[in-house]
Amino acid sequence: MHAHFLDPYKPRSSPIHQLDARLKVPLVIAFILTTSLIPIGGWPFYIFLTAVLLSAEILSDLGIPFFFKRAALALPFVLAALPVLFTQTGNVWVTLPFGLTITAPGVERFISVALKAWISVQAAILMASTTPFPEILLALRALRLPKVLVSIIGLMWRYLFVIVDETIRMMNARNARSGESPNPSYKHGGSVFWRAKVTGGMAGNLFIRSIERSDRIYHAMLSRGYDGEIRHLPLPSIPEIQRWISVVVFVSFFLIVVLARVLWG
């Protein structure tokens, strides 16, 4: 079994895919920032941002269900905001046992937080599924991330699949060793501490193998002329029209935030 399906990138030839990553990444970050800056309960703005998002999703040629499915990933965290339902003071909507009350401001705040999280995570999914990893690295360089860090992340990505494969092999080996008799009188599995120790051994093993692998990689790099200096290809130029579209979008995000703050501030 290989871990190649780990990569969330979905190759298509949509306009969203063609947008340069150096514009796409900042645009997505600006979109998420805009979403975060909309005041609690600014419903028309949430609807507007959702509409923008859905349009981009349709334009990306991946289909809205794909995004909805992936967005479910962030849902469990919504539970952390659940207590807010009961702790805000204001109009009481529902009275529950244990003396709990659900108030209107509490519901408003909870739905706003959940909506913001839902919109933001979809924007991030859109970015990751329409941008190949090398282009994300390019965007990180354009965002002035130190060269060393960009190289480390690049190398990490390259070996992630190798090491995940190694981890899967170790887990398969453990499964193969962990037989279980249908006869319940035979003990199996060991104690929790024993199981944790086995898993810890796997983690330690993974670490040893990885550090040995990094040694081999370093020597391979050395023999190919690596001298510690990190060299990147020069950044290709961004098409003029994409620049202009991005400027317009950035300005409209800014205006939306100003408008929302004025109307709901």
Binding site: M156, V164, L206, S210, S214
Partner: peptide, 26 residues
């Protein structure tokens, strides 16, 4: 020094993959 990129890159991948390791509690 110059070992930084390979060592840090591979070990970051190892920690990432190591987060997949789990054991059943109950």
């Amino acid at each position: 020094g110059e070992r930084e990129v390979p060592v840090m890159g591979v070990l970051a991948a190892a920690i990432f993959a190591g987060q997949m390791l789990n054991f059943t509690v109950t």
